[in-house]
Amino acid sequence: MNWLDETMVGFDTETTGVSTERDRIVTAAVITRRGGEVSTRTWLIDPGIPIPEAASAVHGISTSQARAEGVQPPAALEEIATALASALDAGHPVVAFNAQFDLTLLENELARHGLPSLASRLSRGEVRPVIDPLVLDRKMDQYRKGKRKLIDLCTLYSVSVVADDLHAADADVLATLELVHALAAAFPAMRDTPLDSLHDLQADAHHAWAVRFGAWLKSKGTTEDLPEPAWPVARVTAAPSSTTAAPTTAGGETGALF
């Protein structure tokens, strides 16, 4: 028996946009998988700012629905952070597709609402172990051409997804958990690599990719929104504030199936 046969905790968010600094969490899912048993927790949050139409078109949550049915951010964020911290301190990996986005956004949201960071809640003081199928696929098959969104990797590795549930945080988490097993079947060395070593491998792999991709973007004249080399959490920049951030015009989340 190895870590693939033990407990894994999946995490995903749907958001007001694609900025980990400015945008807010609208829905979130934390799914614990123990063998064949699955436990799901989901949240609908009033983000405190308008949800752009482009974002609503992705995840289906409007500003009016979030305000009417969503809980206030501090309560939900505290529950999410507590669930993830409990898993990580128990040695269970948090699994997230493009984990840097969701975990950095969460840390910024916690800071914005004056709550303790996820890292500060952990006995080791850092967010680990994390498993990110996007980073692993880039590392294991780095020269393959084509897109690497969640739906692309699910298709490539024969992971079934339910079309009607695309862009729901819980559906994305379930697909991501299945994708981890599919990747391990394709690259058996994953199965025999201890979690801490696999975490460090991903951190190194993401850093190398971000530096390389950032240099390419700069060569094309791009100087803003360059990839952050730190993984699984990038810089936390949000200052404590409840509702003053301006809404973004870009919608969706980077872990989306499309």
Score class of each variant (00 low, 15 high):
residue 81 A to T: 04
residue 81 A to H: 02
residue 81 A to P: 04
residue 81 A to V: 01
residue 81 A to M: 09
residue 82 T to I: 00
residue 82 T to M: 04
residue 83 A to K: 00
residue 83 A to Q: 04
residue 83 A to I: 02
residue 84 L to Y: 02
residue 84 L to I: 06
residue 85 A to D: 01
residue 85 A to R: 01
residue 85 A to S: 10
residue 85 A to C: 09
residue 85 A to Y: 00
residue 85 A to P: 01
residue 86 S to E: 14
residue 86 S to A: 14
residue 87 A to P: 05
residue 87 A to G: 06
residue 88 L to P: 02
residue 88 L to M: 10
residue 89 D to Y: 07
residue 89 D to S: 14
residue 89 D to H: 00
residue 89 D to T: 10
residue 89 D to C: 09
residue 89 D to V: 05
residue 89 D to P: 04
residue 89 D to M: 01
residue 90 A to V: 05
residue 90 A to T: 00
residue 90 A to W: 02
residue 91 G to C: 08
residue 91 G to D: 01
residue 91 G to I: 04
residue 92 H to S: 12
residue 92 H to W: 08
residue 92 H to L: 00
residue 92 H to C: 09
residue 93 P to C: 12
residue 93 P to T: 05
residue 93 P to R: 09
residue 93 P to I: 06
residue 94 V to Q: 02
residue 94 V to F: 06
residue 94 V to M: 01
residue 94 V to C: 07
residue 94 V to K: 00
residue 95 V to G: 08
residue 95 V to N: 04
residue 95 V to H: 04
residue 95 V to Q: 10
residue 95 V to W: 13
residue 95 V to K: 08
residue 96 A to I: 01
residue 96 A to W: 06
residue 96 A to H: 03
residue 96 A to Y: 03
residue 96 A to T: 03
residue 97 F to Y: 15
residue 97 F to D: 06
residue 97 F to E: 06
residue 98 N to E: 07
residue 98 N to T: 09
residue 99 A to V: 06
residue 99 A to R: 03
residue 100 Q to P: 03
residue 100 Q to G: 11
residue 100 Q to E: 11
residue 100 Q to V: 04
residue 101 F to T: 06
residue 101 F to R: 00
residue 101 F to N: 00
residue 101 F to I: 02
residue 102 D to G: 13
residue 102 D to I: 14
residue 102 D to V: 15
residue 102 D to Q: 13
residue 102 D to F: 14
residue 102 D to N: 15
residue 103 L to N: 11
residue 104 T to D: 13
residue 104 T to L: 13
residue 104 T to K: 12
residue 105 L to C: 06
residue 105 L to N: 11
residue 105 L to Q: 09
residue 106 L to N: 11
residue 106 L to T: 07
residue 106 L to C: 08
residue 106 L to P: 02
residue 106 L to Y: 07
residue 106 L to S: 07
residue 106 L to Q: 04
residue 107 E to I: 07
residue 107 E to W: 08
residue 107 E to S: 15
residue 107 E to F: 08
residue 107 E to T: 07
residue 107 E to R: 13
residue 108 N to I: 11
residue 108 N to E: 09
residue 108 N to D: 14
residue 108 N to R: 09
residue 109 E to I: 02
residue 109 E to C: 12
residue 109 E to L: 12
residue 109 E to Y: 09
residue 109 E to T: 09
residue 110 L to A: 13
residue 110 L to M: 03
residue 110 L to P: 11
residue 110 L to D: 07
residue 110 L to G: 02
residue 111 A to F: 07
residue 111 A to T: 14
residue 111 A to E: 15
residue 111 A to W: 12
residue 111 A to L: 15
residue 112 R to D: 11
residue 112 R to N: 13
residue 112 R to Y: 11
residue 113 H to I: 10
residue 113 H to Y: 15
residue 113 H to W: 15
residue 113 H to K: 12
residue 114 G to R: 15
residue 114 G to Y: 12
residue 114 G to N: 10
residue 115 L to Y: 08
residue 115 L to Q: 10
residue 115 L to M: 08
residue 115 L to E: 06
residue 115 L to R: 12
